[in-house]
Design a protein around this nucleic acid. Structure first.
Length: 296
DNA sequence: CACTTGACCTGTCCGC
DNA sequence: TGCGGACAGGTCAAGT
């Protein structure tokens, strides 16, 4: 579920809420949500102080004073919600709150801090996980070591974007955008939105795209991700920030989940197709498919 | 190899 | 209302 913007918002929120707090206890009722050995958890989590909250792609990293880090992947429906001492319900405006009293039936892991506050890892579909690893090992974790560059970092030029994509010249451009080895952090929503912004059909073969196309897609992707962060992320179903509040990007989305409605650019109907096994939204009028000329 | 499908899970929505 | 099936923002393993 959460893509780069959503994880970044959670990171920003948690930075303000839990840095400096000391962990008192951790409990979980779904083993796969926290596949660690009990011994390591006891030794390196209890009494650990939170020193930093980081992000790499869609992965959240909570650094602890014990030289260990909690690595968290929220997958489709994961949520990380902080609640203060005796605060069972969110403090946000009720209409903006998607999460009620915690813990609830989706709570997989609960982290108690010594000041009485709690961090809840909720995950309806149980795909997400958190793991405790040595902080020095983070970059060698199987998942993270294969990640491509961060699209919002300064060094991410359109030329490097092009060069990364050309690693899969025959793949559909949407497949390339979703490949975390090519770029880290893009998921289904922002792939569709940035392809619409750049007027590129999601099935276009990467090697069919001109430099002009790629330069515009690079800019569109960055703009879309930044706007999403500014809008508080996308709450399609489950996503909430660290305070349990929804994001509003979905209200300003151009194509995502808008099949049957009109394209805000040309007025034609937005269609939904399948690309790489994922629901894909586009305007077939302004996102034309470029077909290779067959050389005889 | 590169690409597709199924698995991991629960919940919701839609058609009958 | 009830039931079956399709589908949901992600990733990995297995199959073609």
């Amino acid at each position: 579920m959460p893509e780069l913007p959503e994880v970044e918002i959670i990171r920003l929120g948690l930075s303000k809420l839990i840095i400096g707090k000391t962990i008192k206890n951790v409990s979980y009722d779904w083993d796969k949500s926290f596949p660690n050995e009990q011994g390591l958890v006891k030794a390196s989590l209890m009494s650990a102080k939170v020193s930093a909250v980081k992000r790499r792609g869609k992965v959240l990293i909570i650094d602890l004073s014990t030289k260990h880090s909690l690595v968290i992947h929220l997958k489709m429906t994961g949520q990380l919600v902080f609640r203060g001492k005796l605060e069972h319900f969110g403090a946000g405006h009720p209409s903006n709150s998607l999460v009620g009293k915690l813990p609830d039936k989706s709570t997989r892991v609960t982290i108690n801090f010594t000041d009485g506050s709690n961090l809840y890892f909720n995950d309806q579909r149980k795909f997400g996980w958190m793991r405790l690893v040595k902080s020095s090992d983070i970059t060698s974790i199987e998942l993270i070591k294969t990640f491509g560059p961060e699209p919002l970092e300064a060094g991410f030029s359109w030329q490097s974007f092009r060069d990364r994509l050309k690693l899969r010249p025959n793949a559909a451009i949407k497949t390339g955008l979703l490949d975390q080895k090519i770029i880290a952090g893009v998921g289904n929503i922002y792939a569709d939105e940035s392809l619409w912004a750049a007027k590129i059909h999601p099935l276009t073969q990467i090697n069919m795209l001109s430099n002009e196309n790629l330069e515009l897609l690079h800019k569109s992707l960055i703009d879309v991700l930044r706007l999403a962060i500014k809008s508080g992320g996308s709450t399609d179903r489950n996503y909430v920030n660290a305070k349990g509040q929804r994001g509003s990007y979905i209200k300003i989305a151009k194509v995502f989940r808008r099949e049957g409605l009109t394209c805000p650019r040309c007025g034609h109907e937005i269609k939904k197709i399948r690309v790489a096994g994922r629901g894909t939204h586009l305007c077939t009028y302004c996102q034309r498919l470029k077909i290779a000329k067959i050389s005889k």
